[in-house]
Structures are given as C-alpha cells and as structure tokens.
C-alpha cells in the first residue's frame, strides 16, 4: 500500500518536472485532461456500483462557477481556498440531491441526474448577471502570495491539477481496495444480497455520490482556473456525456483508467480537429467504436494485459 502511494507521488513529481519542459499548449491540454480525469474518477466510483450518471456536468459546472463567482465576490484569488469552496458547495448540493437520486437505478438514474444538470444549465442561461450563455472570465489564480505572470500562469493551474490528481488518485486507489470500495461491485451484482449481509445499499450509493460530486467540483474548479473563462455549457448534457465517453475509453477497472482516458480523449480530439476540421466527429466516433469493439475494458486493459502477462 505504502509502496503504491510512493509511486503515485513519484509519478506526480515526474509530471510536474515534465511540465517545466512542455510546450504551453500541451500543458494546457493536460491540465484540462487531468481536470476531466478527476471528474471521471468520481464517475468511476459510481459506475463500479452500476450507476451511470449523465449529469456529472452539474457538479463540474457548479464547481467552476463557485470558483468564478467567489473569486469576484470575495475578491480572493487564493486557488486553494476557492477549490475548497467549490468542493464544499458541491458536496452540500449532492447531499440534498443524492437523497432523492440514490433511489434510482439504470437509465432512470442517468436521466434524472441529467435533468438536474440541465436545470442548472437553464438557470445559468437565464442569469444575465453571470453572462448568460456567454459565461464570464475568471481572474487568474494566486497561491499564497505567489502571483504567476505570463508564462508561469498556465503552469500554476497545471501544478494544481497534478497535485489534485495525485491526492485523489491515492484516495481512489485505496478506496477501491477498502470494504466500502468493494461494496460498490457487490451492489452492482446484487443489491438484495448486500442488504442481507447487513450493509445499507442506500448508504453505499449515497457516499459514492457525494465523493463523485466532490471530485467533479474539484475538476470543474481547476478547469475554471486554468481556462480563465466559464460558461453554462459545462452543465449541458453533452459535457456529461463526454465524461461517460472518457470513462469507457479509459476503462473503469483501475483508478488510472480515467486519467489515461481523459488524456487520450483530449489528444485525439485536438489532432482530429487539426487533421480534419470538417469531419473530426467521425474520427472520434470511429475511435470510440474501435475501443468498444476491441478493448471492451478500456485502454487501461492494454496496460493490464502487459503487466499481468496476459496475451495481447
């Protein structure tokens, strides 16, 4: 366990060091990818319990707006404070919505969670104070008095994303090996038996929902700080759909799946944009089909096949 933790931290430090040598566009792309990876890690917890949320955009967007609004309103640009606020607000909302949602399964869970994110979308589009559908700009972040300027601006957000990823990654990796983590798969397989064993299915799902909301809020907050601009599109169903897309692409068998999925997705999309500006959607669609057909457990299963000596 400790060994793994050290390794995750090591990988984080390597990523940070690599960030110093990367071209700016890649730093930015990876920041966004890591932020999405955080959201998808939360989604992974739910998906392992058999619940697919088509509404994680709700917390992704809410987290981003918390950072943006609080930054303006409290006139603080302290990144850590803002991100903490984003998480707290998201968890608070999830604590209410979760009570209702954890009664639902399958497609109804998916659609109901989507309905909530679409309602947030509608509210934001209606609020001209926050720039309606155009959104508004977020001030650049600070960290304990360090005001990054020019070139180092994107690096701060990148650093935050890597640190968050390492922290959440360690947590998720451990969580998946804890009784609570395994309970997710038990719920997916057979809820009634889980209840017979004395565990509360509702509580298991509720906890996972809160965790997923916290991670999505964190991801959204980091996106806001990195991109410097937020808009209601973050709560639109296509954004939530993208998270599910990434989860299936990376695979939900391991905490690293979402991260790899997110990086791959972003790279694939940006190169599809470049190579074929007129038909990039087709490239994405074909890539997704190929992965589903040949790598049903996501891209991560490739890594597992190699490390566990299974034939390719």
């Amino acid at each position: 366990m400790k060994y793994a933790t050290t390794m995750i931290v090591g990988a984080g430090i390597a990523l940070l060091a690599a960030g110093l040598f990367m071209p700016g566009w890649l730093t930015f792309l990876l920041t966004l990818a890591f932020a999405k990876g955080l959201v998808v890690m939360g989604l992974l917890l739910l998906m392992r319990a058999g619940l697919v949320s088509f509404g994680q955009g709700l917390y992704y967007c809410l987290g981003a707006y918390c950072v943006g609004i609080a930054g303006d309103y409290f006139e603080t640009q302290n990144a850590l404070l803002l991100l903490l606020l984003a998480i707290v607000v998201c968890v608070a909302l999830a604590a209410v919505i979760g009570l209702l949602l954890c009664r639902y399964r399958d497609i109804f869970f998916a659609m109901f969670s989507m309905a909530f994110s679409m309602i947030l979308y509608g509210v934001l589009v209606k609020s001209s104070a926050f720039g309606s559908s155009d959104g508004f700009n977020v001030k650049p972040p600070l960290l304990f008095g360090w005001t990054p300027t020019g070139e180092s601006g994107p690096f701060l957000a990148y650093g935050l994303a890597v640190v968050a990823l390492v922290g959440v990654g360690i947590f998720v990796w451990r969580y998946l090996r804890s009784p609570m983590g395994y309970a997710g798969e038990a719920v997916r397989e057979n809820e009634i038996r889980v209840e017979y064993l004395g565990a509360s299915v509702r509580r298991i799902i509720y906890t996972k929902y809160l965790l997923a909301a916290a991670m999505a809020g964190l991801g959204g907050g980091i996106t806001a700080l990195a991109a410097g601009h937020i808009d209601p599109e973050m709560a639109y169903w296509t954004t939530s759909g993208e998270f599910v897309f990434i989860a299936l692409m990376g695979g939900v068998g391991h905490a690293a799946g979402p991260v790899i999925g997110a990086v791959l997705f972003e790279l694939l999309r940006t190169y599809a944009f470049q190579i074929s500006p007129y038909t990039w959607q087709m490239i994405l669609g074909i890539a997704l089909l190929v992965i589903i057909l040949y790598l049903p457990k996501g891209v991560w299963s490739l890594v597992e096949r190699v490390t566990k000596g299974k034939p390719l």
């Binding site: 566009w25 930015f28 792309l29 966004l32 601009h229 599109e233 973050m234 940006t270 944009f273 470049q274």
Partner: peptide, 15 residues
C-alpha cells in the same frame, strides 16, 4: 465551447 476553443487557440499558436 469556449474552453475547447482556448485550447485550440493555443494549439494554433504554439503547435
């Protein structure tokens, strides 16, 4: 969307 376009803008300039 706007975030995607910020990203694509960087690609245009830096890549």
């Amino acid at each position: 969307g706007a975030t995607k376009q910020s990203s694509e803008y960087r690609n245009l300039v830096e890549r």
